[in-house]
Write a protein that binds this DNA or RNA. Sequence first.
DNA 1: TCAATGTTTCAAGGATCGTTGAATCATGGA
DNA 2: TCCATGATTCAACGATCCTTGAAACATTGA
Lengths: 121, 121
Amino acid sequence: MDDRQALASFAALSQETRLQVVRTLVVAGPDGLAAGSIAERVGVSPSNLSFHLKELDHAGLISQRRESRSIVYSASYEALANLVKFLMEDCCSGHPGIRASLERSGDCCTGTTADKDATVA
Amino acid sequence: MDDRQALASFAALSQETRLQVVRTLVVAGPDGLAAGSIAERVGVSPSNLSFHLKELDHAGLISQRRESRSIVYSASYEALANLVKFLMEDCCSGHPGIRASLERSGDCCTGTTADKDATVA
DNA sequence: TCAATGTTTCAAGGATCGTTGAATCATGGA
DNA sequence: TCCATGATTCAACGATCCTTGAAACATTGA
């Protein structure tokens, strides 16, 4: 991931509504969610949501497909993973402090603590 | 890490100069770097740098201490680690895709694949 | 074709952000 | 005390971002 895309991703995630949208889509899974459904869950107007979806799409964090009348959005897990990697590489270079901090608290992706609260599927 | 701090961190990192500053400080290590030295390396005016440093400090990504005439800044490795964790928790919840993506390419912090290119200590 | 539904686009506004240079503050040495 | 150095603060300006509601577009079913 190059700097340009990382900057766009950080900018995309630095806005409350958009962070909520990403979270909602991540939880929704690969099947994604129609725009209207997202708007309802996040609590914003369709117009406003569309604005933010465009921003997320431009950053490459989500993808879309038309399904009948709806446009279905889904999180780009690959882009999110790349962003995590970008952040870790920047953090780790020259200093092992981050790695130590991460391991000390156990991260959510290694499977060891993945069952901490299984509320919804 | 709560949403407020994550949003502030993402906003802080979404600006080219600030991303450069963080990178510079991470590489510099725990000893940190004087403001003037940062300004020189990043290539911005002292005034402009001060503006961005304040932003990074407000997000909690850096810390400062006075040392004679200089003010020395250093990266907050803990805050950076927390941000990585925040991102991973958001990414992983409800879907293992990120974990798979991260492990597939080998991340720099887990130690298991840390020897992929051991250029510097 | 017509109407209904789901979504995006557009223009306008207010708010926030980033840059600049001059002024100010803090520290250390003569 | 006075001056030099290192850094921050301030005001002003342009640029970008976010929100809003109305209008437009795309798709489906009657």
